[in-house]
Structure formats: C-alpha cells, structure tokens
Amino acid sequence: MGRGRAKAKQTKVARELKYRTHETDFSALANELHHDNSSSEAKRSDDERDDYADYSESSRD
C-alpha cells in the first residue's frame, strides 16, 4: 500500500529520460573527464593537513 504513487513517479521519470531528446555538450564532457585533477587533489590534501597541524603530537612539544 502506498507504493503506487512512487512507482508512477519513477515510471514518469524513466519515460522522460528514455524519450526526451538531449542536447549534450560532448566537448565540455570530454574536458571534464580528461581534466588533470591530480594536482588539485594533492593541493587539497595538503590544505587539509595544514588545518589540523595544530593538533598533531609534534606541534605540542
């Protein structure tokens, strides 16, 4: 009981996704997928370490 409305919503969304024409910007997608984010990840992890440097054992000495 109560599943009918949720199932109808899922069916509606599935039909929209299946039959709607999409204007996809493939160049933007390719740029996002091939973007070199290893340097930004390394920078982000360095920033996180700096935030908690005050709490480390070595900084208490």
Results as ranks from 00 to 15, higher is better:
60 R>M: 00
47 D>S: 02
21 T>E: 15
40 S>Y: 08
20 R>T: 10
41 E>V: 05
40 S>K: 09
19 Y>F: 15
35 H>D: 10
52 Y>E: 06
18 K>C: 02
31 N>R: 12
49 R>A: 15
14 A>P: 00
52 Y>V: 14
53 A>N: 04
53 A>S: 10
53 A>V: 09
9 K>N: 10
46 D>S: 10
5 R>D: 03
2 G>I: 01
53 A>L: 14
1 M>P: 00
17 L>R: 04
20 R>N: 04
27 S>R: 11
17 L>C: 13
28 A>C: 08
5 R>Y: 07
22 H>T: 06
50 D>Q: 13
57 E>P: 00
59 S>R: 03
21 T>V: 15
23 E>F: 05
9 K>Y: 12
57 E>H: 07
10 Q>W: 04
2 G>C: 09
21 T>F: 05
33 L>I: 11
9 K>E: 06
53 A>D: 03
14 A>R: 15
34 H>Y: 10
6 A>N: 12
27 S>Q: 14
54 D>C: 06
6 A>E: 11
20 R>Q: 12
4 G>I: 02
20 R>A: 14
43 K>W: 03
41 E>H: 08
3 R>L: 12
10 Q>A: 15
19 Y>K: 06
43 K>T: 11
48 E>K: 07
10 Q>K: 15
54 D>V: 04
51 D>W: 02
18 K>P: 02
27 S>D: 13
50 D>M: 12
60 R>G: 01
58 S>P: 00
60 R>K: 15
13 V>T: 11
24 T>P: 00
34 H>C: 09
37 N>C: 04
28 A>M: 13
24 T>R: 13
28 A>Q: 12
12 K>V: 08
30 A>G: 04
20 R>I: 00
49 R>W: 02
20 R>G: 01
44 R>Y: 10
46 D>Q: 12
48 E>H: 01
45 S>N: 13
52 Y>D: 06
55 Y>T: 03
11 T>F: 07
13 V>I: 14
50 D>T: 11
23 E>C: 03
6 A>F: 08
45 S>Y: 05
23 E>Q: 11
58 S>D: 09
19 Y>P: 01
40 S>D: 11
48 E>Y: 01
36 D>E: 11
24 T>K: 08
20 R>E: 09
26 F>D: 05
22 H>K: 14
38 S>M: 03
28 A>T: 02
39 S>F: 05
25 D>Y: 02
20 R>W: 03
51 D>P: 04
19 Y>C: 07
32 E>K: 05
12 K>A: 14
40 S>P: 00
2 G>E: 04
46 D>I: 05
49 R>L: 15
5 R>C: 05
42 A>R: 06
57 E>V: 00
